[in-house]
Every structure is written in C-alpha cells, then in structure tokens.
Design a protein around this nucleic acid. Sequence first.
RNA 1: GGCCCCAUCGUCUAGCGGCCUAGGACGCCAGGUUCUCAUCCUGGAAAUCGCGGGUUCAAAUCCCGCUGGGGUCACCA
Length: 465
Amino acid sequence: MIRTRIAPSPTGEDIHIGNLYTAYINYIFAHKNDGKFLVRIEDTDQTRKVEGSEEKILSTLNAFGVNPDESVEAGGEYGPYRQSDRLELYKKYADELIEKGSAYYCICSRERLSKVREEMKAKKQIPKYDKYCLSRQDEVQKEINNGAEYVIRLNVPTDEEVIFQDVIRGEIRINTSNLDDQVLLKSDGYPTYHLGVVVDDYLMKISHVIRAEEWISSTPKHILIYKAFGWELPIFAHVPILRNPDKSKLSKRKNPVWASWYLEQGFLPEAVLNYLALMGWSHPEGKEIFDAEEFTRVFTLERIQPVGPVFDVTKLEWMNGQYIMALPISNLKFLISNFYKDRNLDEHIVEQSVPLVRERMKTLKDYWDIAAMFYQSPIEYEKDFTNQKELLEKVVHTLESISPWKASVIGEKLQDLATAEEVKFGTFFMMLRIALSGKKVTPPLNESMEILGKEECITRIKHVI
RNA sequence: GGCCCCAUCGUCUAGCGGCCUAGGACGCCAGGUUCUCAUCCUGGAAAUCGCGGGUUCAAAUCCCGCUGGGGUCACCA
C-alpha cells in the first residue's frame, strides 16, 4: 500500500505555495498507485504557532482540490493527525530510545549550549553539542528526579557513513561526524520535528516520504532513528525547492507565497496546479496543458529533475488565460460572478459579456478592467471631444433609427455613417469607443453597444457633446 | 566556513553516446487578420549545452577537477 503525506506546521497565515507543490505531487503519486494521501499537522512548536493557521491550510488545500484521504478533518484509522494530540506517544518512543542507548537525557542550560557552540566556532569546528551529559547520565538522572528541566538527545555515532537512496537524486551519503546530537524531546514535553516525523511516518505507515530538498541534510538523523528502532526505512524522494527569480528559496519577502493569494488574484486552482506540475517535471509528450487526471496517469517520481525551478508568474498568467478560454461560458460566468460577489454584478450582463472578455482575461481579476463599461458610465475620458460634437450628433441620430438593436445592424449603420462623413473607420470607432467607455481599449464595440442598449449608448454620447 | 544538492536559450524544460549545425513552451521582436485591445496565423532573435581536463571512432549526454548557484548546520519546522 502506497501512503504519502505532507506535514505542514501551522506557523504561517496559510499554506506556502511550495508546500502546495509537494502536496500536489504527494497527492498525485498516492492516487496513481491506489494509495492514500494524508495531511498531518506538525504543531510541535508552541512558540511559533499561529492561530487559525491549521484551518486555513486545510481549507486552502481543499480549495485547490488537493484533498487528503486522511487528516484532522477527514479522519482515518491512523489518527490523531495532529501532533499535539499525540504527545504521550513521543514520550514513550523517546524513552525506548534511551533504553536502547540511542538517546540520552540532557540538562544543559541554554547558556552553556550557546557557549559550547561559540567555542567550537572559534576553533573553526562544526558547532554542535559536546555530549557532556552523556558522560554523566547517573548524575543527570538525579537532577531530573529533583525536578530539573531536561531534554532527550539523539546519541549520534561519531564517525559513521549514513547512506540512503533518493529516488530523484540517487545515492546520498553523509558522515555522522557532521551531525549534531539533535534534541528529540523538548523540555516542554513536545517532540522536535525529527522525532515527530519518524515516529508518525512509521505509525502512519508512510511508504514514500516525498518532501522538499531542504530536508536532505536532516534525513541521516531520521535514518539513525529508524535504525535505532529497527524500523524499515520509507522510500525518500526530495523534490526541488521552488525559487525566487534570484534563485534563492521562494520566500515571502520576494514573492507572494501564500497559496490562497493566487486564488484571490483570480488564478484558477486547476491552472496553478498545472503550472506547478511543470516545475521540475515535464510531460513525456511535451504537453503543457493537462489536468490532474492526466497528470496522475503519466506522472513518475523518477522524471522529476533535481534542479530548483524559478517560479515564473508570467507563464502562470499565460496558462491561466488558457484555462479561462477553455472554460464553458456558463462556468466562466459563474466564476466571475463569484469572484466579484461583493459587487453583486448583474447576472444577465455577466452572461452577455463573457464571450467578449474571455480571450482578453489572464485572471478573473482582469474582468473588471475590461468589462467595467457595462456596469458604469465613464468617469473620465482618455480624449476630449471638442472638435467632434457635430459628428457625434449625427451618430446619435443614426443610433436612434437603428432597429433591431443588434451588433450586426449597429455596425452596418455606423460604417455607412463613417463612409458618408468621409471619416476613417479607425478614427471614427475610436472616438465612439472613448465616448462610450472613456477608454481606448475595450471589447468589440458593436457587441458592447448591443449589451449597453440603445438608450444607454445615446445617453453616454450626449453626455460628451 | 563544514557538509550536502545542483548546473541546456531571460524563464520552464526536451535530451539519457551517434537521429543535436540542441527541440518545445512562456516572454520578447517583426509581419498578417482586425474599428482598439486580445485571440489566432506566419516568421525571427535568443543556450559555443558554466569552465577545464579526461574516457570514446563519437559527449549536452560517462568520469574527475574548478567555478558558480542553492540548501543546511536551533529545545523551528
């Protein structure tokens, strides 16, 4: 049984787009193999915990359709799915590690710890814990019995090669001399990430640990823990980290990183996911546009490239435009109405305008820029009409005579007028366009006039005369 | 700085020893269609495959070194 997971920590206002990326890959990979994808909340850092974050992460995942088969909300037989609800478990396993000699108690003060690190740094050595407490466990035990605060540390072997296979990168080997005696259980009784992941991935029967590249260097610590317990290792796959244009790790300082931001900007979930699928991975047939179903069908972990891709919003915009154009009119109408629900747009106008605007929109947000003229009179004009009042009077007369009020008829009559007045079409229609919308760029004029209605068109033209 | 990962057009990428005088996509430029914009169509510029050594009849593709970029070194995940 293939089981994958993402383990977000509720320390931000939403799920990070990079996390959505790994989530999507985990989701697709699990479903491709008739497995399960689960979300486990890693809320072991009490100090960084953000109120509402957990709910937001889950709801955003939901909004993108990357639904977990098991989670805090969906339930499942391996719960609870929130680490703060599993505290006794970590304590138990930490104790087991101590019995096996793979971990030990430590009561060193933070002052001593930083002092030790400073000294090692000064000596150009790797800053890490000096195993002081390991050599005096009896004494430490007594102190603890007397109420001393303590942590449990992993007893890392001094010089041992840890070798593991990464599906995307091949063999990776790291010597334990580079590893610190990582804290496993904190003094507040919470586990650190390292204990938490290993214990939970084991208990939740995770078969494939697919996570971001930044975790490569701590994987050996995890492997040491697996080995200490005598547990079978999961398969590891470290996917690339999404980058800012300057190639650094995608961060909120340089880029919008919260996944729901993209939704708020009018990107479609399917388009964002499709774009994400192309990060570090390419369709075997070179296709660019494909849905989750097709992705599931052709996806393989092995095809993921180890190179860190730059997240390019421009290409995302293009892709989003492609999705918008491919949408059935009724769907797009619904999405626009919903996106602008605060404006309470006239349903009928939305419906009529959609065919005119769809190929001009990159995001749902673009709708208002393009279609505002259908809902409100011009506020300002990109041109003045002082020399054209006579011509505009004639336009009004022409419009008054038009029946039925159809785009084709309007266009025909207006062209006749322009010809009779010996005005170039371009000049003529541009004048009219600005008179009606205030802007030089609008949807096709005849169709737009049909939507506006005869009365409104005449009113607007008279307004500038 | 130590350790680890990585390296093909500006960006996303194809390529897995000969089919590559390196292909596609976004973006960009030019032209066409058109009453504006957009769509659409056509064409173009854009990577001496980071550099230097090997291996081989043959290397973008394999090996080594260098350089560059990134990640990581917490009682954060």
